[in-house]
Design a protein around this nucleic acid. Structure first.
Lengths: 117, 117
DNA sequence: ACAACAGATCGACACCCGTCGATGCAACTC
DNA sequence: GAGTTGCATCGACGGGTGTCGATCTGTTGT
């Protein structure tokens, strides 16, 4: 029987710290947390990987289908995906020997909420 | 009479390259451009500076009022502000010996548009 | 049990980036 | 004109990051 390991998200789903920064000056701690999330999106390779997952017809995508179209090596892809998962932007579910990724819309919504009211 | 130099935005106001990445896989070029913008927000110090400008009561803020509350040196603040201006997130206007910064809402809106439909 | 395979981890390398003191530059004051 | 002030630029240092080849771990198939 196939083993299934659901990824434990390093951070909670949609609770991003901050209100829109129109609403006041960010604390040092809040800024730190927010920056980590933006940092995950601040790389071209990760943005492309992110868009591959977000635009997947089935709502999920296998890691094996990311290496070739991304043009990066397998370790590099694995690294980038871990960064995105740690940032709470994706979830990883390991089914058999394959890893499947899904977007976390709540996280993206929370991010958008910071950029404006 | 006071001299006034209006900042020339390095990039155009609101034309951020990309549609929401739910809509398809980003091209390498688009990903590069988007990443530059996110990179500007991927630093705690810049996020705090950004929030100081965005939440300014008068809609603008003087650079002289940013050094002390940010806790960074004057050259560091100047560097961060340049990054934000180059990313099109802020505009700089030099009046006399002071530099005044304003947010660029269209740019933030465009960014939000990428994060979701 | 053994081979094949997907993916994560490790080690190493080059490069970028945040930071600050010192300096340069332009505008205002006297 | 000389001094002052606000800001940008320069040079240098330290730490972080993207990248890949090699290796390890765990699963499937024979």
């Amino acid at each position: 029987m196939g083993k299934v390991k659901v990824a434990t998200p390093t951070t909670n789903p949609s609770d991003l710290c901050c209100r829109p920064f129109t609403a006041g000056v960010l604390s040092a701690a809040d800024a730190e947390e927010l920056a980590t999330t933006f940092k995950a999106l601040a790389d071209p390779a990760r943005l492309r990987l992110m868009s591959m997952v977000a635009s997947a017809p089935d709502g999920e995508v296998c890691a094996c289908d990311l290496v070739e179209p991304s043009g990066k090596s397998q370790p590099t892809v694995s690294h980038h995906m871990s960064v995105l998962v740690d940032a709470g932007l994706l979830t990883r579910e390991k089914r058999g020997r394959w890893a499947w990724y899904r977007p976390v819309p709540e996280r993206l919504d929370a991010l958008r909420g910071v950029l404006a009211p």
